[in-house]
């Protein structure tokens, strides 16, 4: 599935949070969204998910404007894994994943074979089969993120939006989660802080600064010492990794 934002702007309390951003992701492609804290990554993802109405510009799903679709139709196509989502409800992993079927079911419609299959498949994809009966509040950070990923997969989306999904995870779980996302057939947009992980797991990167798009392209073209200095004010050297061939950033302090 194709998702595209054209000239997206979003203003909150007279402040431009997102400022004229245009980006597009094609089928099966993974786009990394990088930029400092407060550069508008989360807000941009919320606009792309149709959760906020842009003050300018439009989002298109397979070239159709997203505002022409109902909330439910959008939810059948676009799934979001938000930052620190948590709940007080005493839900089990399986029950959280089942929430992903809500957009596909009528209010009084029973549980169908297709619902079961998609939930099972999502549990497998997220490696949660053995954890399916665990309660949410007993899960570690990595397990929670995988549960949210599975819930998103159960929505059968064409587009998956992930807002800093690796935050607070140790390196093993960061790699595990991103590997799982890469293995999916969805078009993905991932907001990431770690430039090296972004280079490793994304086909293209978009760099945001103060709500504006300042660079985009293949990781090795975008991640230059000049850009890292301009955006983060950090000295860096970038080289091609002899191990995986992707751009590798070394911070010089």
């Amino acid at each position: 599935m194709n998702i595209e934002g054209r000239e997206l702007s979003w203003t909150r309390q007279h402040q431009r949070i997102v400022d004229g951003v245009t980006l597009a992701v094609g089928p099966g492609e993974t786009l990394g969204l990088i930029g400092p804290n407060g550069s508008g990554k989360s807000s941009l993802l919320h606009l792309m998910a149709g959760l906020r109405r842009p003050s300018g510009g439009r989002v298109y799903l397979d070239h159709e404007p997203i505002d022409g679709l109902s909330r439910r139709q959008v939810a059948q196509k676009v799934a979001l894994v938000a930052q620190h989502s948590t709940t007080d409800a005493d839900l089990r992993v399986e029950e959280v994943v089942r929430l992903g079927r809500i957009p596909h079911r009528g209010p009084l419609q029973g549980w169908t074979r297709s619902d079961v299959e998609h939930v099972e498949q999502a549990l497998v994809q997220a490696g949660l089969v053995v954890l399916r009966h665990r309660r949410w509040h007993t899960l570690s950070g990595g397990e929670r993120q995988r549960t949210q990923l599975a819930r998103a997969m159960a929505q059968q989306p064409g587009v998956l939006l992930l807002d800093e999904p690796t935050n607070h995870l140790d390196i093993q779980h960061q790699l595990d989660l991103l590997t799982r996302v890469r293995a999916l057939a969805t078009s993905n947009i991932i907001a990431l802080h770690d430039l090296n992980l972004a280079a490793m797991f994304c086909d293209r990167l978009v760099v945001l600064s103060e709500g504006q798009l300042v660079a985009q392209g293949a990781p090795e073209d975008v991640l230059t010492p000049a850009l890292i200095w301009r955006i983060y004010g950090v000295d860096a050297a970038v080289e091609r990794s002899p191990h995986h061939g992707k751009a590798q950033v070394h911070y010089l302090v």
């Binding site: 909330r71 709940t87 992903g100």
Partner: peptide
Amino acid sequence: FYFARTMDAFAFGEDAAASLGVS
């Protein structure tokens, strides 16, 4: 009762409910 499943969708907050297709 008609909104029972919708209430489930609120478990992770209003944005999460909205992203599950709830108005």
